[in-house]
Amino acid sequence: MRDERPAPGGGVVDELDDDVLARRAGLGDRLAFTELVDRHGPALHRYASRMLDDPSETADCLQDAMADAWRGLSGFGGRSSVRTWMFTLVTHAVRRHQSRQLKRTAAPVDDEVLARRATGPGQDPARVVEMQGFVEALDAALRQLPEGQRSAWILKEVEGLSYAEVAEVGRTTPDVVRGRLSRARATLTTLLEDWR
């Protein structure tokens, strides 16, 4: 649905580029900031919820990350895209929450885990084609991935970030991202084999 609220500085907020919204929000424009959150919130939530796997933690994490965004926009220099920057803030918040909660990050996947399939007992993928079921199976598969691989796969394959952007979010290099993605794909391919 289009957001036809007039932007104070002109234009319609949902037609404005992220950079323009970020510039305005950085100067205190709450409407511009809210549009940025509405624009990227679903993807950020999708990402955070699969990194934390806890609805309450996810909500707290997003609150923290968006508060960081509001505080940081006045100094946002545009060195990365606004979207990448917001994913970076969420990633930092995820790590803080994991650290605070002493959440154990997923262990590397071993052969035994790889042997398990993401489908439940007795499920027949040929008949279960609903999106929800598939998403649940995918979530189960994603939980098997180590954090770095899970993050890289979601950011690259689901959210469409480039290798360089994924590397920036994860504070690593594009080569490391390629390696993580390769391993993530191999694991997910195995775990989701029944859905082929």
């Binding site: 959150v37 919820s49 996810t58 609150q63 965004a69 598939f134 394959e157 689901v158 859905w195």
Partner: peptide, 26 residues
């Protein structure tokens, strides 16, 4: 399919927390 399923899937969780997130940020 998995990537696309996630892209198409709107988490109900976001709808529930959206206002809280915006209010806290602002």
């Amino acid at each position: 399919r998995a990537a696309e399923a996630l892209r198409l899937h709107t988490d109900a969780g976001w709808v529930r927390v959206r206002q809280r997130v915006v209010d806290a940020a602002l």
